[in-house]
């Protein structure tokens, strides 16, 4: 298991390490995109999962019961086992995906690579292009369509 990053999350070390492993497996680094196991991203996810420790431990026990050393499996084999976990422990998968995605896709580096300026919408906002209202000519040419009463 990877070293546990510094965090104030309430998850126990075993559960935290399991979540870290899953984050790297779910969203690996590629090009300019960081891994979801990046320390800054993972810390937010661990905090988010801290209220779901029983779900995490339940999932971890399930993995341990499969008779393999999950950490030593290849990524392909790990993902195959995650599919089994998904079918057996959907509540855990839902909670994990929710927190992982909420943490990863709020990271300024990730948003920047996606072309979103890496900032909150407010106060900067966004400039919208002028609308070409000539597009409506075919609609107006047709005339009134509401039902007269």
């Amino acid at each position: 298991m990877p070293d546990l990053i510094s965090t104030d999350a309430a998850l126990n070390p075993e559960a935290s390490a399991f979540i870290m492993l899953l984050l790297g497996l779910m969203i690996p680094a590629e090009g300019e995109m960081p891994s979801a196991a990046d320390p800054a991203i993972a810390q937010k996810c661990l905090q988010g999962m801290s209220s779901a420790e029983s779900l995490v431990m339940d999932a971890l026990y399930f993995i341990n019961d499969q008779g393999v050393d999950f950490e030593k499996l290849s990524p392909t084999e790990q993902l195959r086992l995650i599919d089994t976990l998904r079918a057996s422990k959907p509540e855990f998968i839902a909670a994990f995906q929710f927190n992982a995605v909420a943490s990863y896709y709020a990271d300024e580096r990730v948003l920047t690579v996606l072309g979103l300026e890496g900032r909150a919408p407010h106060p900067g906002g966004y400039k919208a292009p002028e609308t070409d209202w000539r597009l409506l000519e075919t609609v107006t040419e047709r005339g009134s369509i509401y039902r007269k009463v």
Binding site: I27, P75, F98, V101, A102, Y104, Y105
Partner: peptide, 20 residues
């Protein structure tokens, strides 16, 4: 950005792993 990912994961269009 996050809703797109969550929707994609839910529908199976966005996988875990290298193809994410």
């Amino acid at each position: 950005a996050a809703s797109t990912a969550l929707g994609g994961l839910g529908s199976g269009k966005v996988p875990w792993g290298p193809g994410h």
